[in-house]
Write a protein that binds this DNA or RNA. Sequence first.
RNA 1: GGGUUCUUAGCUCAGUUGGUUAGAGCGCUACCUUGACAUGGUAGAGGUCACAGGUUCGACUCCUGUAGAACCCACCA
Length: 955
Amino acid sequence: MRGRDKRCDAIRSTGRVRIFPTKLLKHGEPMSEDLARPTPLAPAYDPAQVEDTWYAWWEGRRLFHAEPDPTRKSFTVVIPPPNITGMLTMGHVLNNTLQDVFVRWHRMRGENAVWIPGTDHAGIATQTVVEKALKKDEGKSRHDLGREEFLRRVWEWRGKYGDIIVRQLRKLGVSCDWDRTVFTMDPELSVAVREVFIRLYRKGLVYRGKRIINWDPVSHTALSDEEVVFKEQQGKLWHIRYPVMIDGRPSTDAFLVVATTRPETMLGDTAVAVHPEDERYQKYIGHTVFLPLMEREIPIVADTYVERGFGTGVVKITPAHDPNDFAVAERHGLPRINVMNVDASINEEGGVYAGLDRYDARARIVADLEVGGFLEKIEDYTHSVGFSDRTDVPVEPYLSDQWFVAMQSLAEPALGVVRDGVVKFYPERWVKTYEHWMTNIRDWTISRQLWWGHRIPVFYCDACGWQDALQEHPAACPACGVGGVRQDEDVLDTWFSSWLWPFSVHHWPKDSLDLRTFYPSSVLVTGPDIIFFWVARMIMAGLEFMPDIPLPDGSPRTEAKDLVPFHDVYFTSIIRDEKGRKMSKSLGNSPDPLDVIAEYGADALRFTVAYLAPLGQDVLFSTKKCEIGRNFANKLWNAGRFLLMNKEKVEADGWSFRDGAWHASDGSVEPASADMPLEDRWILSRLHETTAALHETMDKYRVNDMAKALYEFVWHDYCDWYIELIKERLYSNDAGVRRETLARALGVYDAMLRLLHPIMPFITEEIWHKVEPGREEASLMTQRLPEADHAVIDASAVMEMTFLQSLVEGVRTIQGEMNVPAGKTCDVVINCHDESQLRVVRENTHFLERLARIGAIDAAVGAARPRLSASTVVAGADVFVPLEGLIDITVERQRLTKEIERVTGLLKGIDSKLGNAKFVGNAPEDVVAREKEKQSSFRTMLDKLHTNLQSLEND
RNA sequence: GGGUUCUUAGCUCAGUUGGUUAGAGCGCUACCUUGACAUGGUAGAGGUCACAGGUUCGACUCCUGUAGAACCCACCA
């Protein structure tokens, strides 16, 4: 550990607020007068002291709230609703930081920005959580309670815990319009869900059918595909002989051998299949085989699904226990025999094996096959098996009745709007993924065998066979008037409410100004993993269900751009840990964002995440990286602290600073002078260049570029150079100069705060309130963002400043290399390239003196090199630093030689380029011109370097 | 098997239509308590841009192939 860290650790352990130089503490001396003097801001920024306060202040004043206003441009974002079972993860942090940056940015551009929050009922996840608690606390299952009571308990649970995530989000600083908070199972949203179901039902797009689903034999529920995790398993491949039937009896020497990983499912076999072009088996197609153990005769069918090269090229077909077999059976009209109970034990269809667990049955069956001589061989085989994400048991493919949505007709228009760019994807490459899925779309299984969710609004009359989809449960059968009516037992897939989210949050199907105005939303921010489950389906739903709702002016909504749910989709990065692994609960590699916020502050976390997340690339995150944001916040804080310390001094003379100008005690306003010194013209140029870049990057959703541009400007331009440059003026004897300087520095700082606010809302609000009095009732979040004014950009100021910076760096380098003691200044002789350069040097000698510990500067065109000087060449000027007694000739010789080598190399490259007729002939003129310019400047540089080296040798 | 993406400094990553002296942060080395900031400052070391071809006057950037990594989809019984 380095000394500095040791010192700091000792100090940190005493408390984090103030860090003092060790010397003072070590000697036990009282703090010096100067350090003890109260300053407007503490030396180190402490986010914990301000963040909650500001959030409550914003929320209390309803600053996040927006009302529809057709006369203004709306900027709408609808949150991807977190699950009510959810806890804030790094994924949420990234996703919601981005949304908040967008929303705050557009709000500060004067748009009517609204961000609609809400939560998702998360069918399986929530039901599982509540069931677990029920089991643990009362030892009961949901069946013990019954449906009604169980649902009451779930609602109770959601009342207690369902908004934890939403409260956690507030810690991040998100500017959601909490007045508009909705929940997917709110009464009005449930109306929307039923309405959509009914409309699709009437159109014939919702239908009931049989399908193989993922069955969890422990929790007795169907699982969605995304709740099944595949794991590599060491298994066996059993080769079983199915005797061919010849003349009505099983052959004793002709077999079709099937290879299977699941011999127990043979109880439900209704065919064997071969590839239609497989020469080995073609003669058997249309014949039958004898199914061992069950002693059934089953057909041999031909289907291209069979892979000739795999196994034996013969597949047993078990339609009720394998999705592919099910499809084969559909094509060939084969019967389906379900041989399992809901707990995956063998049912009565399994003959003597009935009642056995699936794995016990497997052992018995294999043994019996062996005995019967039907087992040809057993091979070791590694394959992947689907496990339940919830209970960690192998999922059983299971045949059951389910509800489906026919997707074809919905998908086609939804594909079109993405292809045509009505909905734009960022990054664009996801369009391909989307197209692939949409052109191979399968019908959507929307029923779930759960209790928690929107119950399928289909009603049946057992007396007369009536069936219909309705909003309300009818008291008696509308058809026969006699029978009682029962509702379908299943609930809808959670995504069935999610796909309506962009308009159900505005209480569709009810027409309202909210819905008319705030739909469609501007940008959706979500992960690419749910492009199919959610994004695609929302687009379909918008196109299908929104044409009824007029535009704000009452005209019909017909154009695709008004029907789609959002115009842009921003696909976020995936947050991984340092080793590149996905963050997950089971790995325990996901830091708790609340801990991170407590340690570093929400602004630091937000900035870091935005800074690290380029559009479309994964992010390797570790808590330590939040130092980027924390240090940056601290830098900003201290720059503000410096300005405010100086402001206090001016105010002590009776002046006050309001609206960006100084007011004298008599109330008169001090006008800003028209002539600005170089550093002011330069920093304003840089500010406007940066502002232009920020607007550009935000339009392209390149948030990391935006964060970098801000970082660069604040830290390097403003703090490293500008503040150092103005210190001289701030300490001037002329009070007018001090005020003028500070006013301009504060002006630029104010612009910085605005530009930073969307990404770091807390610290900027905190400082902004301290900069000027009279802001008690105002908020930075509703101020306007600066716009770039290209007229302010002063190219010559930028050039001059760049030159001066190079001079400073050149001298510093020499001082560093020659180990010039820190307290010592050096004189400098500058041989300027021309008169205008000389003028710049003369006008700014004070900078050079201040920033590079320079004593006297002797500048002239043609100035001679003093003896025993170290030298460097900057923009065609020689910079000589006479170092009699300090110079190490060897080091200096090495430096110059190395430099000569470097420039020689560069020049060689350019020479050969320009010597190449093809280059000169083909390259654009400006490129050639630039090369020529470089060539001449490198030549003069090289000449000078050679001369200076020669002189050094002569010393 | 199909698709997408990635490989640039010790580490994590930028590099937006091909023309830069290839950048940043962290880490490393040396120096620094000078009135905002040691959560800081200054300087420095460190890269044949995975590899091999090709296109081009010119390739980190475009094309092809190879090797490695990741993700998504479909999963072969």
